[in-house]
């Protein structure tokens, strides 16, 4: 095997949107994001990874990692993505992920929320993603200790754990408008709002349609609505589709945790299965389409759009399975000879 490489993307803007004002969402500190990167690098080193490619930002994460690098430490070689201008937008994540794919990364670890993971998923091609939560409404990224995630990622990137055994492909929702083609990892929602505004969705009264790849009863965000009405596990090839409306005009109301500290009644007119591979035309002609809880696409008046559940989304790492495989193969275990110790 040639040089082994893993990527780390850390979004400086995750966990900073308007839900800090309209709800009680927490701020995920920059210093903690930088700590997580360092914990990942420390774990990579234990797995024998040759090189880590790390995103750069103007928020202080890569600067803190660079300072720590100067203090010395047992890390693999670290290269920062420095070839693209930093825009302060989602393009920074896209560019960094593309550089990591080009560098031959075996795994890309993404620190952010659902929004960051969505952008990374659109650019990572067949390289497995390991998304760790540093955002607000996190359904796709995992709340997991970065050290353990780093061990799992390093073992996969170095080929010690077979990625075929511990990664799986997830479904995505593809949204197609006249001018754009985007994906969502968890949900697509249509709002009567005219403009994207501050991006996050927190007012359910303007929502008309919701499509989810999966819906878990203990989820947060919009997928928690079907999670309480018509749960659909992540393992299911199909998703769910719901028609929403103002409370008082709908036969069903779900009290859904749509943001941290914000449990709101959401009116539901009806729901059904969203079959994989079937293209659905959105009922709305105009308004705004939100992807994974963030308003992203403004439709022109009368403009139509389509959504389709596709099974060929990104490959994602199952950390538990990777660590179980490491245990089965004894990859993090060393056996000593107790007799030799006694004879000394």
């Amino acid at each position: 095997m040639g040089e082994t490489v893993a990527g780390i993307v850390a979004n400086p803007a995750s966990g900073r949107d308007i839900r800090r004002l309209v709800a009680q969402a927490s701020v995920f500190p920059t210093a903690e994001k930088a700590n997580m990167v360092q914990r990942l690098l420390a774990a990579f080193a234990v797995t024998g990874l040759d090189r880590a490619v790390v995103s750069t930002d103007l928020g202080g994460i890569s600067a803190a990692v660079l300072r720590a690098l100067g203090r010395g430490g047992t890390w693999p070689k670290v290269d920062f993505c420095a070839d693209d201008p930093i825009t302060g937008t989602a393009a920074d994540t896209t560019n960094a992920v593309r550089r990591m794919v080009e560098a031959g990364a075996g795994v890309i670890v993404v620190l952010g929320g659902d929004g960051t993971a969505r952008v990374a998923a659109a650019a990572c091609e067949d390289v497995p993603l390991l998304a760790l939560s540093t955002g607000t409404n996190n359904v796709f990224p995992q709340m997991r200790e970065a050290t353990v995630a780093g061990l799992a990622a390093g073992l996969i990137a170095t080929g010690q754990v077979d990625p075929d055994l511990v990664t799986h492909r997830v479904s995505v929702l593809e949204v197609v408008t006249k001018a754009r083609r985007e994906i969502a990892l968890v949900d697509v929602c249509v709002s009567l709002s005219r403009h994207i505004g501050a991006r996050a969705l927190w007012d359910p009264s303007s929502l008309t349609e919701l499509y989810c790849t999966f819906a878990e009863p203990d989820g947060i965000g919009l997928s928690s609505v079907p999670g309480q009405l018509c749960p659909s596990p992540r393992s299911s090839p199909d998703g769910v589709a719901l028609q929403l409306g103002p409370v008082g005009e709908t036969p069903y109301v779900v009290h859904a945790p749509i943001a941290p500290g914000l449990v709101r009644p959401v009116g539901v007119r009806g729901w059904g299965l969203l079959r994989a591979g079937v293209r659905v035309e959105l009922a709305a002609a105009g308004g705004v389409i939100a992807l994974d809880g963030e308003r992203e696409l403004e439709l022109k008046t009368g403009e139509s759009a389509f959504v389709e559940l596709k099974p060929d989304g990104p490959w994602v790492v199952d950390v538990r399975a990777a660590m179980a495989e490491a245990a089965r193969k004894g990859l993090l275990r060393a056996e000593t000879d107790p007799g030799k110790e006694r004879r000394r």
Partner: peptide, 19 residues
Amino acid sequence: TTGYTDQAAGLGVPGVIVD
């Protein structure tokens, strides 16, 4: 510019980043 939200959160002031 960005960079004050961490400190503001520590002081109990909610912060938001927008374009």
